[in-house]
């Protein structure tokens, strides 16, 4: 590898109180395998902590994983905070236990992609590369 390539940075975090981090950790690893630099922030984070970290780490995107059903509230809060901080250029995507009927609403809110359980890793990577305009 060339150690001085520009690397796209992505933050993976779990807002809310649920502690199931298998999906979040797995996505972090496949993004690493795809050459991204992933900032993993762990479980039980507030939207404020996640947005502040995303800004300090200069990431291009934030991935949120949620299994508790609190996605409507917490995704919105993260997107609102990004707006407040003038950081709406940071893309937000998500995954976890999310009913299909909620996806259109999340997208309208500004979530660029939602990956439900069973989404193959290469689909996640490819979708993100398109959204972040990473040359293939």
């Amino acid at each position: 590898m060339d150690r001085n390539d520009k690397r796209i940075r992505i933050l993976i975090g779990k807002p809310g109180l649920d502690g199931h981090d298998r999906g979040a950790k797995y996505v972090a690893q496949i993004l690493r395998d795809a050459g991204f630099e992933v900032i993993y922030t762990g479980i039980r984070r507030t939207p404020e902590q996640i947005v502040e970290a995303a800004i300090q780490e200069d990431v291009s995107a934030i991935g949120l994983s949620l299994l508790s059903g609190a996605h409507k509230f917490l995704f919105k809060r993260v997107i609102d905070l990004l707006k407040e901080k003038g950081a709406s250029d940071i893309q937000v995507f998500g995954g976890g236990t999310i009913p299909p009927d909620d996806i259109p609403m999340l997208k309208q809110m500004g979530v660029c992609a939602v990956f439900t359980p069973g989404t193959p890793g290469r689909v996640i990577v490819q979708t993100l590369k398109e959204h972040l305009q990473v040359p293939a």
């Binding site: 809310g16 109180l17 649920d18 039980r44 507030t46 508790s68 609190a70 409507k72 509230f73 809060r77």
Partner: peptide, 17 residues
């Protein structure tokens, strides 16, 4: 989850949960 972790329902940490 708030009950499992020890937050009342009106705690800011419980928002959405």
């Amino acid at each position: 989850l708030p009950t499992q972790i020890g937050y009342d329902s009106d705690d800011p940490m419980s928002l959405g949960e």
